[in-house]
Amino acid sequence: MAKKKGRNPNNVLFLEALLMALFIFGIGIVMGIFIEDVRSDRVTEGYFDSQVNLLDMQTLSDLISTGDYSCEYRREKNIDFGNKIYEDALKFSEYEEAQTFGDSLESQHRIYDLLRTIFWVNSLELKDDCGEMNIIVYLYNYDEKDAEEKQKQEVFSRFAGELKSEMGENTVLIPIAMNLGIESLNVLKESYGIVKTSIIINEKTVLDSIEDLNEFN
């Protein structure tokens, strides 16, 4: 038999490799957390930005009654704002799905949805005052677990986007998660008889099934 060897001096390589792997892996994790923090900050910043814009919109509405501001101007600002929050919604939903380490962005999302609800009410008022505006509201469930429902929602979302393009420049699309316990939204939902993923078009038409989407097309 070969002589029993003592401890192999090169066994320290296992330890060195472990330290190196921990170092590289640790850097990866720290960078991952950093990237997600940056994204989370962007969502929060986006929220503040939207909040300021919405307040600005409301102030503008108040000014209308006292000053000489045209409906055209108000409508333009409203649509710009609507477009921005729609783009934000798409971007932030991607951020949320890419979240690995960080906490869920549910609380930010809830605030966002409240803002969008206020924006919806604001847009309805503006339409009453000035007319000539299309409002599409897409109501969906946040963090839908059911795979089939989730894919239905994806299709509803895409349909709403396509509809917005088809209906022209004077159209706002407002996506709102309806299951985050926002009371004012619940009242609005009840008034339209909404119980599941739906698209409300100009306060008249409610589409809540794939078949409805097809028929509307």
Partner: peptide, 23 residues
């Protein structure tokens, strides 16, 4: 569902908004 609803399967925003995960 896209086929049933007659909506697009892929759009430009799918590419623009793609956000890689840490994984």
């Amino acid at each position: 569902f896209s086929f049933l609803a007659d909506t697009a399967l892929v759009t430009g925003s799918d590419v623009i908004n793609f956000t890689p995960t840490v994984l």
